[in-house]
């Protein structure tokens, strides 16, 4: 069951970024599914670790695009990623205590963050990239 839908409001029109967001959302949904099924802690820990890995990969990917096209908002955008990465590193420690409540908080945090980040921050990056002919 998908809790978090990739709908029109999240589509930015830059294929590579949209694809990554879809995958990101897919991992978030996997995590929700695992929590809903009541999987053993080691099983959802694995999924959550994958999710965290992907978050880091996604940040690095967007930043490489920004550098390639000399995006003027690079520093601010990266700062935004950095703040989230700091929180993710903190979260990971708490996950290790394997409390389902902490796990839910982690997935909810990432979901809220991603939704907001796409609509507020990534949308500006996408419009810049489109102006450079990227689609």
């Amino acid at each position: 069951m998908s809790v978090f839908e990739f709908d029109q409001s999240l589509q930015l029109g830059v294929q590579a970024i949209d694809e990554q967001h879809k995958r990101f959302i897919g991992y978030i949904n996997d995590a929700w599914d695992a929590l809903e099924r009541g999987d053993d802690s080691e099983e959802y820990l694995y999924i959550l670790n994958q999710l965290m890995d992907y978050a880091m990969e996604h940040f690095s990917f967007e930043e490489s695009l920004m550098r390639e096209f000399q995006y003027p908002g690079y520093d601010d955008h990266k700062q935004n990623h950095n703040r989230t990465a700091e929180q993710l590193f903190e979260f990971d420690m708490r996950l290790l205590a394997a409390s389902p409540d902490d796990c839910r908080a982690f997935v909810q945090f990432l979901q809220d963050w991603l939704q907001n980040h796409i609509k507020v921050v990534d949308v500006e990056l996408a419009s810049f990239l489109k102006s450079k002919g990227v689609s």
Partner: peptide, 14 residues
């Protein structure tokens, strides 16, 4: 990780 892309190669950090 925080120095990725500026100091250190992002892919290698991952």
């Amino acid at each position: 990780f925080m120095g990725r892309g500026e100091d250190i190669d992002s892919t290698l950090v991952q």
